[in-house]
């Protein structure tokens, strides 16, 4: 039963969806503060390359190395996002152009590739990787066993993060301030909330989560390093935030939907379904477009979700 195609697809959808979920949660937090960061792809690749570098370089027990690697990935990607934060928050640069610049800078033919070459990471077998955990020994439980109880630690972390994000946004004071900064920075400012600090913190938090998402590629899905190995996942994560109406719980749903599209080709090919591989490979991209169109046509609804000041720099002393 656990070998039926739907169960296999669902289990791998969660696996493929996890990096999307991390990146989308991060982007969601940044956008909630009013900063659009189109550099997710670049930040993910920086996380992927630095996480893999850490695993190959640091010695120690496997779980310690992996933990450190995830932290390294988060820190490096957060540092990358700092460039975007400085340019858009302090220097008032166009968020769109700066985000694109970040992806070009760090992306598939940018710094991540440079680092990979300098450290000769390409083609190395991974010394450690995140393996699926057999929770309570229940992985063979029908249906929910392989889907829910046989995933790796990062996936379980991502579930915890969704809960934390929900609690943070709607139940805590800083969460309220964050929403206010994205909704109406002038109001938040007049009320003594430091708009600049909130924006910096959440852009960098977004970077850190994107980095972990990237590390999921190099440490879990296909352990190793390859130039541009995230192949557009960062962009899909940005689309996911729109799809989720800027809400964490919907990001979870969306991530697994897109995870399913991403894993479909792989799963079907092993089942001897004969179609050109490009058809499957293009599925996540085409479905992203389709889903975005469906979400966008009800544009009044979309407006209700989007932070009102998204993309607009906040300047107090200007007339």
């Amino acid at each position: 039963m656990n070998n039926t195609i739907l169960v296999v697809i669902a289990a791998s959808a969660i696996s493929y969806g996890t990096p999307l979920l991390f990146a989308a949660l991060g982007e969601l937090l940044a956008e909630r503060s009013g900063v659009l960061n189109l550099g997710v792809e670049g930040m993910m690749l920086m996380g992927a390359v630095s996480g893999f570098w850490a695993v190959q370089t640091i010695g120690g027990p496997g779980w310690v190395v992996l933990l450190v690697a995830v932290l390294v990935a988060a820190l490096v990607a957060a540092a990358t996002s700092l460039i975007h934060a400085v340019l858009t928050i302090s220097l008032r640069a166009s968020q769109i152009v700066s985000g694109l610049a970040l992806t070009i800078f760090a992306g598939a033919s940018g710094l991540s590739s440079y680092v990979g070459h300098v450290a000769s990471l390409g083609g190395q077998p991974a010394r450690h990787e995140f393996a699926a955990i057999d929770v309570l020994g229940l992985k063979d439980l029908p249906i929910i066993g392989p889907i829910l109880l046989h995933q790796n630690a990062l996936t379980y972390l991502s579930w915890a993060l969704v809960a934390v994000a929900l609690f943070y946004l709607y139940r805590t004071r800083p969460g309220l301030h964050l929403r206010a900064v994205g909704e109406s920075p002038a109001t938040a400012d007049a009320m003594g909330v430091n708009v600049t600090v909130y924006r910096y913190v959440h852009v960098m938090l977004g970077g850190a989560l994107a980095g972990i998402g990237g590390a999921f590629f190099s440490l879990a899905i296909t352990p190793g390093w390859l130039d541009g190995m995230t192949s557009g996942a960062g962009w899909i994560a940005i689309a996911l935030v729109i799809f989720a109406f800027w809400r964490p719980e919907l990001a979870l749903v969306g991530a697994y939907l897109f995870g399913a599209f991403s894993s479909l080709g792989f799963t079907l090919q092993t089942r001897q379904v004969h179609l050109p591989p490009e058809v499957f490979s293009s599925l996540p991209y085409l479905m992203t477009i389709v889903v975005l169109v469906l979400v966008s046509t009800g544009w009044a609804r979309q407006r209700l979700g989007a932070p009102a000041s998204l993309g607009v720099p906040y300047v107090r002393e200007e007339r």
Partner: peptide, 10 residues
Amino acid sequence: PAGLVGTLQG
């Protein structure tokens, strides 16, 4: 190393 051009452009 590859990637330098993209880094530079960024």
